[in-house]
Design a protein around this nucleic acid. Structure first.
Lengths: 268, 268
DNA sequence: CAGTGTGAATTCTTTCACAGCG
DNA sequence: CGCTGTGAAAGAATTCACACTG
């Protein structure tokens, strides 16, 4: 993805597959739970079950990190927790800023998971002047004007965008300009960023749509094909003339303000 | 994944790759935006850019759905919107229930993206009796006791879990028993469900951890290896004796109630 | 001998590149 | 002529299965 090529020729086999990286947090969670119950060791089988993967995959994943297990025994829980934490970079403290303190932003600010893993909410930022100074999750919200200063002062390199879609790119640009190099984007937009900046997106409605796809399959197990409701226009593949005005049928934002302060899925 | 094997022998080539399914919502979003701007057609190149993928991938994806484009021209926006919507099952109405109306649950209830894509919030459910009756996003919260009845009455097949991790499996079991077959899980736990039930998870802290991993790599571009802070114990791979009591160093839930009403990342 | 670590086989995904159609 | 649709090649990720070790 990032054109930077990231190719790392020397120093050992420093190339952990993305798919593996994405699972490390899962393992870490399972391990932390075991650690809290003072379980000293686990087998790949047990840990895999706890993490919701299969043991072959888990062992292969760990093999990219090194040989941290003991044959015939399993893995030392504490040791693995440490190794994975270190690999993920969680042994250091990561200050993050959350931009856009609407419903979602507030939820994130309150989210225990952030604080408990080396992430520290350095600031909450919102464009609404009325929000400024209001405490959310024990932290006073600051105005967008302060954005650059906050990031600079706190050495923040990770930003979370929880603004409406319409504002996301703009916020993103400012974050990047201010020195942020990793962004977690909750707004339903594709952000464009320069090389060297990482973006991960979480889109709540996309997940639901994927579920709907599979759900639909289940329902139509036998009765394949043809829908029921006759109110949508199948639209022959040849006529580009947009049928009715605007886009009445399928859409109709019904409830909900058009594009309030919550990341609405269909912004502009 | 699901052991049901889901193998579909007959009726055409009904096998859209998961990776493709996961991107359809992305295309749909881009297309809807175009549709709202009354753009009649797009090329694979344009649409790909808008969706944040490359055009070869997009064309391949679409080829699984059928031949909906026109050579030398591109795709008819309205027509594609319809086809993808239908493929995703969004031409029908999906009632969903959200269980756990804490910060996150409330954010989800307010999330415009749900309502705007064939998803209808049929009910908000919370275990706290004090929440019952309180309106959130214009809908009165109902008590967990009503769960089965609500699902049955509304023919709900998709459930969203936004409870603390500790309650998630229990809620999940009840949802499944009540007939839910698709679950979107925001609680940081692995849910176990019977065959035939789909679970998708969204874990906010996992995404951050993945970002941290890459961020760390950037920082240590040259200065590979060895950490700085000497406060963590590297723990030799041979000594299973848990060093200090409990797990002081790396963890320390610091802020936040121990396992309040927000999905804390480290529950039990 | 239980359970890790890992080459090899398999399957899934992405990318290439170009024939063919409107 | 431009752009889709798609076989074929390349690249990842997953799974298998077993040698090897504590």
């Amino acid at each position: 993805m990032a054109t930077g090529r990231t190719h790392r020729p020397a120093t050992r086999s420093r190339g952990i597959p993305e798919a593996t990286v994405a699972r490390l947090p899962l393992y870490l969670r399972a391990l932390t739970a075991l650690s809290e119950r003072s379980v000293p060791t686990v087998s790949s089988e047990e840990l895999a079950t706890a993490a919701g993967v299969n043991s072959a995959k888990l062992r292969k994943d760990f093999s990219y990190l090194g040989s941290y297990g003991t044959r015939g025994v399993g893995y030392d829980v504490e040791y693995l927790v440490y190794q994975i934490s270190r690999e993920l970079g969680l042994t250091q403290d990561w200050p993050v800023v959350i931009v856009g303190i609407g419903n979602l932003g507030a939820a994130l600010a309150n989210y225990g998971g952030f604080a408990s893993r080396g992430f520290r909410v350095a600031a909450l930022i919102d464009a609404d002047p009325a929000m400024a100074g209001k405490p959310v999750a024990g932290i006073a919200v600051q105005h967008t004007d302060e954005l650059e200063k906050i990031i600079d002062d706190n050495g923040v390199s990770i930003g979370v965008i929880a603004t409406p879609a319409g504002a996301a790119q703009q916020v993103c640009d400012r974050l990047v300009a201010a020195g942020i190099t990793s962004i977690l984007n909750f707004a339903p937009t594709v952000l464009s960023v320069p090389d060297g900046v990482d973006v991960r997106k979480v889109d709540l409605s996309i997940e639901l749509q994927i579920l709907a796809f599979h759900e639909q399959r289940k329902a139509g197990e036998d009765s394949t094909g043809h829908e029921e409701g006759a109110d949508a226009v199948p639209q022959p593949p040849v006529a580009p003339h947009r049928t009715a005005a605007g886009s009445p049928g399928a859409d109709s934002s019904g409830r909900q303000g058009p594009d309030g302060d919550v990341p609405a899925v269909m912004p502009a």
